[in-house]
Computed example of a mutant assay.
Amino acid sequence: MSRPRIAIVIGHSRPTRFADKPAAWLLEKAEGHGEVDAEIVDLRDFDLPFFDAPASDLWMETTDPKAKAWQDKMAEFDGYVFMVAEYNHSITGELKNALDWAYMPFVRKPFSAFGYGGVGAARAVEHLRTIGVELQMAPIRNAVHLGGGEMLKVHPMGQNGDMSEVDAVLAPSAKQMFDDLAWWARTLKSARAEERAEAA
């Protein structure tokens, strides 16, 4: 079986966002892991409208071409890591909107998160997990959390250092996360294929 494809989804498009620096670091970790193939997927590239369909793609086909492009892109992957900035104890509105636009591509696939903020976006990541469950995704235990003093070492509003400044702290969590994503992605991909074969 080929290596699972994992999307690293940048979950907002604010011009002053911080996500690009940790996303690039995370992609390097994925490429060095050896058991997954990863790609950065940026919400900036999709220009999604606010969700306004009569129903989600669970119930009817989406006609909006931008939303369909987003769904098709998500369908390419076997698992996901969402870059999560914490806004008022939750995920960004943009990420929630993107998740609302795509149900079927996510079903029975694993996901995790790289959260950053004062407490490593822990509250937002927990909220993301409940959203993922409703989308029939499989949330995994291990995630990466960048917060507090470690975040100030690399954030532009702090010392704006290179991600190497926090690598020793974050790398073990990234490895555990990709270990779990690889296992779950392989397992669930095989189960989905078996289900399709039985239905054929």
Rank of each mutant, 00 (worst) to 15 (best):
E94A: 14
P49Y: 08
R192H: 11
G148C: 11
E195I: 03
F106T: 01
A185I: 07
W59N: 14
F51G: 04
D64W: 14
F82S: 02
E165G: 05
A102F: 08
A121H: 12
N88M: 13
R192V: 04
R14Q: 08
D72T: 15
V169G: 03
T187F: 01
E150K: 12
A53H: 02
G117L: 05
P172I: 06
N88P: 04
V107I: 06
H127R: 09
K73T: 15
L95M: 14
D180S: 14
S164A: 15
E198R: 11
D47K: 15
D52S: 15
A69V: 09
T92W: 00
S173C: 01
A124T: 12
M1C: 08
R196E: 13
K66T: 09
D180R: 05
F77L: 02
A19I: 07
N88S: 14
S164W: 08
T16H: 14
D52L: 05
R192M: 13
P22R: 09
W70A: 05
T130Q: 11
H127A: 09
A199H: 06
K21L: 14
I40K: 04
S2V: 03
E31L: 11
G117M: 05
E126K: 08
P110Q: 03
A199F: 00
Q159R: 12
G32N: 15
F111G: 01
S13I: 09
P65K: 08
M137V: 09
A19N: 10
A69S: 14
L27R: 10
F106H: 05
A53L: 06
G147T: 00
D72C: 12
K21V: 13
E31G: 09
K153V: 09
S164E: 14
S56M: 13
R186K: 13
E31P: 01
M104Q: 13
P105V: 05
A193K: 08
Q71S: 07
D57Q: 08
F51D: 08
I8M: 03
A24C: 10
L135G: 04
A102K: 07
H155W: 13
T62S: 13
L99I: 06
F82M: 07
E76T: 08
G149F: 10
A98W: 04
I40E: 01
L128C: 06
A171Y: 01
A199P: 02
R192E: 15
V107C: 03
T16C: 11
W183E: 00
A30K: 06
M74Q: 11
D42E: 02
A121L: 13
L27S: 06
W25C: 00
D162A: 13
W70C: 06
N88W: 10
R17I: 04
